[in-house]
């Protein structure tokens, strides 16, 4: 998997935002990983730990992973349910459904330390 490439892009984005905000440090950030995103949270965290060694500015930055469960809505009866691409609606057994959440791969929030002037 390409977790390494993803965290590299993430680090660039964090440093860009830090610059933009004129911040001292990146304290922590939250990444949403959908259950169906194809990204393995363990591998993602591991890739981040390795990457952090290469970026002095991120050495003390904490990553919070928010795992987003997959949810669907049945196109036939409107019921909402958890599951995967193969799940049938527990209400009416229909395979036709809309994905509501679960494919996220998103940097949601960043906390910086800024000097008060």
């Amino acid at each position: 998997m390409h977790e390494a490439g993803l965290v590299a892009a993430l680090a660039e984005e964090l440093l860009r935002l830090k610059e933009r905000e004129g911040a001292q440090r990146v304290l922590r950030f939250t990444v949403e990983i959908g259950e169906l995103s194809g990204v393995d949270p363990e591998a993602f965290r591991w890739a981040y730990e390795i990457l952090r060694e290469m970026y002095a500015e991120l050495k003390e930055t904490e990553m919070i992973l928010d795992l987003v469960p997959a949810r669907f809505r049945c196109k036939i009866c409107g019921r909402e349910f958890p599951g995967d691409y193969f799940s049938l609606c527990p209400g009416c057994q229909s395979p036709e459904k809309t994905l509501l959440s679960g494919e996220e791969l998103t940097l949601r929030e960043v906390e910086f330390e800024v000097a008060d002037v």
């Binding site: 993803l6 984005e13 998103t106 940097l107 008060d116």
Partner: peptide, 14 residues
């Protein structure tokens, strides 16, 4: 003299 700034980004990693 320092404070925390919280920024909502909501940007896809890709």
């Amino acid at each position: 003299g320092e404070r925390t700034l919280r920024v909502t980004v909501s940007r896809g990693l890709l």
